[in-house]
């Protein structure tokens, strides 16, 4: 694969993700002010001192946006990596062993998926103590149900192929079959799914923070920033829309890359390209 084989839409996505990730990593160097530093008046308009204006407490919006990228990206990434590890491991075990384990896991998965994700998360967060780790864990476990369903379908397809049969006849253990035979052949579709889950995690985290149940202040986080500044809307202050737009842009970028990955996978399989 060469750089020019990547379509322009995917390039836009890659650039957007890189810029956000760069801002997140180098936040202390890029941000003009501190994350929690009160530097001006409440809801000052955009100016040369405050490029995006100030927020509801007089903190610089651009600086908070940059530090917020840190929190949002880190938590969303942690949640999607964890949900993937849980989902893939369990689904591959289910597909490789079949029988009772498969039945049990699949029915449990059906049960968990029969409650809408947000509602389930709300019920759980009402009980569990408030911390970032709990938040990541709740997001990961709820999201892993989707990964499980896809992973199981893919692994079932692969586990009936000849080379897996050959490995079984050689006497390889289940762990070997899962990680050395099934996983490498499932990577391509799973990569696209990872992107989708990541975009979903960003939106989900932002939604929870917006509802006041995600990242807690004063830590900057994009969804929480929308919540902080939402009262400004009535006075035509657009401070709440800027972090909202950041969330949307990042999600669009991830989706653009995923779209390209999905198309690539389907053309690799030689299927009819469905646009």
């Amino acid at each position: 694969m060469r750089a020019r084989d990547i379509p322009p839409s995917a390039w836009i996505g890659i650039i957007g993700i890189t810029v956000t990730a760069g801002a997140a990593v180098f936040a202390p160097y890029v941000a003009p002010y501190g994350e929690r530093e009160i530097v001006g008046d409440i809801w000052e308009p955009m100016s040369s001192t405050f490029l995006l204006g100030t927020d509801n407490l007089g903190r610089d919006l651009l600086s908070r946006l940059i530090y917020g990228a840190r929190t949002t990206l880190a938590v969303a990434l942690a949640a999607s990596v964890l949900s993937f590890s849980i989902g893939i491991t369990l689904s591959f075990i289910a597909a490789a062993t079949r029988g009772v384990v498969d039945q049990g896991l699949s029915r449990l998965n059906d049960l968990m998926m029969s409650i809408p994700t947000l509602i389930f998360a709300l019920v759980l967060l009402a009980v569990l103590p408030q911390s970032v780790w709990v938040l990541i864990l709740v997001m990961a476990v709820l999201d892993s149900t989707r990964v499980f369903r896809l992973g199981r379908a893919i692994a079932l397809d692969i586990s009936v192929m000849e080379f897996v049969e050959a490995a079984r006849l050689r006497g390889e253990r289940t762990i070997w079959i899962i990680f050395r035979e099934i996983l490498p052949n499932a990577l391509s579709p799973l990569l696209a799914e990872f992107g989708l889950r990541f975009a979903f995690s960003i939106l989900f985290l932002s939604t929870l923070s917006f509802l006041g149940l995600g990242i807690q202040p004063p830590t900057a986080d994009w969804g929480g920033m929308v919540k902080d500044n939402k009262d400004g809307i009535i006075f035509a202050v657009s401070a709440a829309l800027i972090p909202g737009a950041a969330i949307a842009t990042l999600a669009v970028c991830v989706n653009l890359v995923v779209d390209w990955l999905l198309k690539r996978t389907s053309s690799l399989k030689g299927g009819r390209d469905d646009g």
Binding site: A199, L203, S206, T207, F210, G223, V226, K230, I233, I234, F235, A236, S238, A240, L241, G244, A245, I247, A248, A251, V252, V254, N255, L256, D259
Partner: peptide, 21 residues
């Protein structure tokens, strides 16, 4: 594709700003 990526609250506040305010 763009619309899928928009969080509900962003769309909501955008509409409020334009149509209500």
């Amino acid at each position: 594709l763009a619309a899928i990526s928009l969080p509900e609250f962003f769309v909501g506040y955008l509409l409020i700003l334009f149509f209500a305010v």
